[in-house]
Design a protein around this nucleic acid. Structure first.
Lengths: 351, 351
DNA sequence: AGGGTTTGATTAAGCGTTTAATCACCTTAC
DNA sequence: GTAAGGTGATTAAACGCTTAATCAAACCCT
């Protein structure tokens, strides 16, 4: 005498319409042979009765869960929001849900996380692996988002080209003496970026690469990087391969009385959330996460489709890597190279 | 002639052992009546045959998907990674998966995202709502992570108390003239923090609150906040309610030649990822996300349990809000108040 | 007009679990 | 010796959906 239809199911609908459940199913999925008018009618009543198909039932029957797994090696990564948002959006557009798992940087846990997702029935996985980690062969489609150096299906930002872009931009501003700041020399991504920058420099330009990890292992965490001295020696631009490092450089220079961008330019990578709001706001290279996620999800669904048809393990679609161009975001922290001042006390406000 | 047992199911196991499927199910779940030896034997063969129960089947039968939905309204929020990580961990510990949905800041999309999760069969939802948004009544258990001012089940950091803690700490360092920096006066969270700070100040202390949004609406985005002037006028500590703002304050002061922490202290809130690595590293109040997530998930599972038993809608467990204390993280950006200098040009390095 | 094809719908089986109901058997008690 | 009770297992139905197989009726063609 109370709840009329708490949540109608396919049979309820069929009964109410006086047709069979199969017909309703066909009408809604557009698969079998149903007359156009009936389809119309069924869809209408389905909508107004608030019918929601049971995903578990569908999953059980079809063997597809309609869920993608997103494995973040380290969820605390500052780029995570961008990635998660983009992947979720792309997946939702294709009618898929996104299950997350995090391996908190622990390489052992990474496979654990992957397994959890597989047990939950994820149809395929998007993996953002921990640095230097390889994703082993699991029995399901996988797409990796990383630097383009993975034997699997990979989609990544074109870090090398990103480096070139920012290098060229800075050259066009008249800079000739580069200090390139990296975090860890073991990172593929960072090395790609550094390589890109250097490859864009002509013969008359100088560049020096410093790795924060190296310096800190000597002088302790949070130590000075000696940038002010380098600026005094003639470096006009500090090119960090991450906004994290760019911020650090920016503050060190400002503390040392070097005016940014008048006396020196600072640039970063990744366009992290605070990059627009610091002063001066950071010039940086942004990854096109939306495109990366779109491609990743598309490739994944492709593989999932293919998996359904192909029984023999031989005819899986060949692994493919795609590079997505990065975008230069020019803000206030970069500008023209200062007029040459040969270690004379120039017009710039120094100590 | 190839795959021996691609993925055994309950019946396969039962057949191999010569018992019924029901017995296997009971043995594994420990529910029915099965002899201890048989349980032992079944569990053993289950394990070594690599048996993985089908979640969809279980979900279909029991009506529980074993999945929690995580709704992030304000995905740009820098705390997002911490929250997601903590929730995922807490849920995984309880054998639950986490499905994410993002409403990209759009308030209309928020309900859409919630619905997507419900359609996917989420047993319950953890919602981190967009500022000023209320979560409407959906037919499932919900826990909200927000400032403690929501009519629903809510768990939140005790922002007010956090404000008091940092206020007291700064008082103990001798500070008496506070500038409190907020972003938007419409944020509950920020208001709580500001209120907490002020409530901790004795009569002989002065405080002034400035809202960045207000200043920027007059002077344009990224404008100066006039902090250097305030420092000259005697303010010795700049208390931001977010590390984002603290960073901005820090840079503005450093650019103006104010030494932090010698001439003035700067503190923030949230312990964002870069807070330890800027120079000087930021003193801040950290939320205990792990605890918050634990409580949120626990309360959610509780509600899900209760929902199973209680038929009458009346006897749902009463909404409860919990506050989790924040943790003071002392780093380099704060220190003792400088010795009094009555607008005379002190010993500090200025312009 | 009657055999073949097309169209629009139905029937029924099955996906892998859980669980209430049932059953056979063994104890125990009177 | 037999009824009552306990124990350890089985049977069978159900969860909600998809889909191949089937079927009845309408259509086409010569």
């Amino acid at each position: 005498m109370s709840n009329p239809r708490p949540r109608p199911n396919l049979s309820d609908l069929a009964a109410a319409l006086g047709v069979s459940a199969a017909t309703v199913s066909n009408a809604l999925s557009g698969k079998g042979r149903v007359s156009p008018e009936l389809i119309e009618k069924i869809r209408k009543t389905a909508a107004e009765s608030g019918y929601i198909p049971s995903l578990p039932a569908k999953a059980l029957r079809t063997g597809r869960s309609g869920v993608l797994g997103l494995v973040l090696a380290d969820i605390a990564h500052p780029l995570f929001p961008q990635i998660a948002q983009a992947v979720e959006f792309a997946a939702a557009n294709c009618g898929y849900g996104v299950l997350i798992a995090d391996s908190r940087g622990d390489i052992a846990t990474q496979t654990g996380a992957i397994n959890r997702l597989l047990e939950r029935g994820a149809d395929g996985l998007v993996v953002v692996p921990r640095r230097g980690t390889r994703v082993g062969d699991i029995g399901r489609p996988v797409v990796v988002i990383d630097s383009p150096s993975t034997p699997r299906n990979t989609v990544a930002a074109d870090h090398w080209n990103g480096g070139q872009q920012i290098g060229q931009y800075l050259l066009s501003q008249g800079h000739r003496h580069f200090v390139i700041i990296g975090g860890s020399a073991t990172s593929n991504v960072q090395n790609d970026r550094v390589g890109g920058i250097r490859s864009s420099l002509p013969a008359d330009a100088t560049s020096e690469v410093i790795w924060i990890e190296d310096i800190e292992s000597k002088n302790g965490k949070g130590c000075d990087l000696g940038l002010v001295a380098k600026a005094r020696e003639g470096a006009t631009v500090f090119c960090a391969v991450s906004d994290l490092h760019a911020l650090r450089a920016l503050m060190e220079l400002q503390r040392g009385g070097i005016d940014v961008p008048k006396a020196a330019s600072v640039t970063g990578f990744d366009d992290l959330i605070w990059s627009p709001v610091v002063t001066p706001s950071l010039t940086t290279m942004r990854m096109d996460m939306a495109t990366i996620a779109d491609i990743a999800v598309a490739r994944l669904l492709e593989a999932i489709e293919a998996e359904g048809g192909a029984k023999s393990p031989s005819e899986k679609p060949e692994p493919h890597i795609s590079s997505v161009p990065m975008q230069l975001v020019i803000r206030q922290s970069s500008g023209p190279a200062p007029v040459r001042r040969l270690s004379t006390s120039g017009g710039v406000a120094v100590l």
